[in-house]
Simulated assay, not measured.
Amino acid sequence: MARRVFLHCGTAKSGTTYLQDLWWRHRDALRERGLLLPGEALRDHFHAAALVKGMDVIVDDLDDDDREVWQRLVAEARDWPGDVLISHEHFSDSSAEAAAAALADLASAAEEVHLVLTVRDLGRVLPSAWQQRVKQGARQSYGKFLATVRRGEDEQKFWRYQDVPGILGRWAAGLPPERVHLVVVPPSGAPRDELWQRTARVLGVDVAGLDTDPRLPNDSLSVVEAELLRRVNRRIPRERRSVALTRLTKGAFARDLLAGSAPRESFVLPAKHAGWVRERAEEMVARLREGRYDVVGDLDDLLPAGPRAGRTPDQAGDDELLAVAATVVARMIEQER
């Protein structure tokens, strides 16, 4: 039986890709130091999260072997004498019933079950979340997305991945507060590996000497690039959207063709939305302080900073969009040579 099992269940857009890249890159070294990542690859943790939360669009495409991946992860944890880490942000979107069942499975495999959430301030999460949705085929403009999030409309699913007190209400029920760890994403300007170091302290694993440079490319899009992709999405009939098309858009198109086709510039929260975002962040921080959870970092860093210079995608001009489109087409032609 494992000594401790840590379930890192989000939040989305809080450095999860960076952390998962490092955890899996250093999997063998971490195992030697007492921390097991069960499964063969991050894909197994993604499929496990999809099974736990009932993500039909993914589960329906799994073969019989992959449908057993969650139970395999639990069994591997049960056979390991040290600590175990399972990580994927899709766990956060599980129902209270699904979360309780998953925690019961983990409790059967470890002496202690711990929950880990990495949390980032809403002022930085919102632009990143919109861009991620665009990569997945969304057509909604940045301004309309922010208005929808403000109204709390469920179809956006934004708050199901970012309402930290709500996530804790589903996942931390029954866990002692000292086993619920909130790792605050450092503010801009902090050392690049500070989030990595903070999570290592929670996991109690020695990461000295392990490389922390990102291996995966930074495929974040610029203001103009993101707006161009949104307009492309509008030209694709909804009935033709599929998991395969989304993977193509996020991968070969956005990463290999679109990214870097326009100058990078600050991607900002419009001033007219700053007030309600700040209010929501203050409310969240107040509720987290009441929870007596283990906090690594400063909860005040979850309060958005003041207005920053920059533009929004809605301000991208047609001439800029045309220039980026021409660059993308040229890159496509070059790839075919």
Score class of each variant (00 low, 15 high):
16 T>G: 10
17 T>L: 10
18 Y>E: 01
21 D>T: 13
34 G>K: 06
47 H>Q: 12
54 G>Y: 10
56 D>F: 04
58 I>F: 14
60 D>Q: 15
60 D>C: 10
64 D>N: 06
67 R>I: 03
71 Q>S: 14
73 L>F: 05
74 V>W: 04
76 E>D: 15
86 I>R: 07
86 I>Q: 07
87 S>L: 08
94 S>G: 10
95 S>V: 02
97 E>S: 13
97 E>F: 00
99 A>G: 06
103 L>S: 04
111 E>I: 01
130 W>R: 04
137 G>I: 03
140 Q>L: 14
144 K>Y: 00
160 R>V: 03
163 D>R: 02
165 P>S: 09
166 G>R: 11
170 R>T: 07
171 W>P: 11
176 P>C: 05
178 E>Q: 13
192 R>H: 13
196 W>H: 13
196 W>C: 00
204 G>S: 04
213 D>T: 13
216 L>H: 13
221 L>P: 01
227 E>N: 14
227 E>I: 00
228 L>M: 04
235 R>E: 13
241 R>I: 00
243 V>R: 15
248 L>Q: 11
250 K>W: 00
262 A>M: 06
268 V>Y: 03
275 G>S: 13
285 V>W: 07
291 G>D: 03
291 G>A: 15
303 L>N: 04
304 P>Y: 03
305 A>P: 01
307 P>A: 14
309 A>K: 13
321 L>V: 05
322 L>N: 02
323 A>C: 04
325 A>E: 11
327 T>D: 14
330 A>N: 13
332 M>S: 12
332 M>E: 11
334 E>W: 08
335 Q>T: 12
